[in-house]
Amino acid sequence: MGGQLPPDMWEHWSKPYIKEIVDLVKKRCPETPIVLYINRNGGLLERMKDTGVDVIGLDWTVDIGRWKKKIG
């Protein structure tokens, strides 16, 4: 439900905890790839980049070509 939050609320209420979980998993299981998927994430993609995940999953509302150019 993270995609339902306005970006500033997501930054405050979701992102720190996502980063904490990612850091813990990477520390304990460094070879495990981590995918972050948030339904309706189009407004959060740039903010999702620095969570430490290996892959950001996109939902059907996102133009893949546009965002690939934007976030790599």
Rank of each mutant, 00 (worst) to 15 (best):
M1L: 07
L36Y: 01
K70W: 03
D50W: 04
E11W: 00
I38F: 09
I21L: 13
E11C: 06
G52H: 03
E20D: 13
T51E: 09
M48Y: 01
I38L: 15
I18P: 01
K15C: 02
W10N: 03
M48F: 00
G72L: 08
M1G: 14
V35P: 00
I56R: 05
G3Q: 13
G3K: 00
E46R: 15
D54R: 14
E31Y: 13
V25Q: 03
I21Y: 08
E20T: 10
V53W: 01
D23H: 09
E46H: 14
D23N: 13
I34N: 02
L58G: 01
M48H: 07
I56G: 03
K69E: 10
E11Q: 13
V53C: 10
V22K: 06
L44C: 09
K26L: 08
L58N: 06
E20L: 13
M48N: 02
P16S: 04
D63I: 12
P33Y: 01
P7E: 05
V53P: 07
D23C: 04
V62C: 11
L44D: 12
T61I: 06
S14A: 15
E20Y: 09
G43S: 12
D8K: 09
S14P: 00
D23V: 03
Y17C: 05
G43V: 10
D50V: 10
N41A: 15
T32F: 05
T51L: 09
I38V: 15
V55S: 04
H12N: 05
W13L: 14
D8Q: 09
I34L: 15
K69G: 02
I18S: 11
R28Q: 14
C29I: 12
I64A: 14
P16Y: 02
S14H: 13
I56T: 08
I71F: 03
R66H: 09
P6Y: 05
K26N: 09
W67Q: 05
V53F: 03
S14D: 13
K70G: 00
W67E: 11
I38D: 04
I56E: 05
Y17S: 09
Y37A: 09
D63F: 11
K27S: 14
T32P: 00
D63Y: 08
G65C: 06
I56C: 01
L36Q: 11
I56S: 03
N39C: 12
E31N: 11
G65A: 06
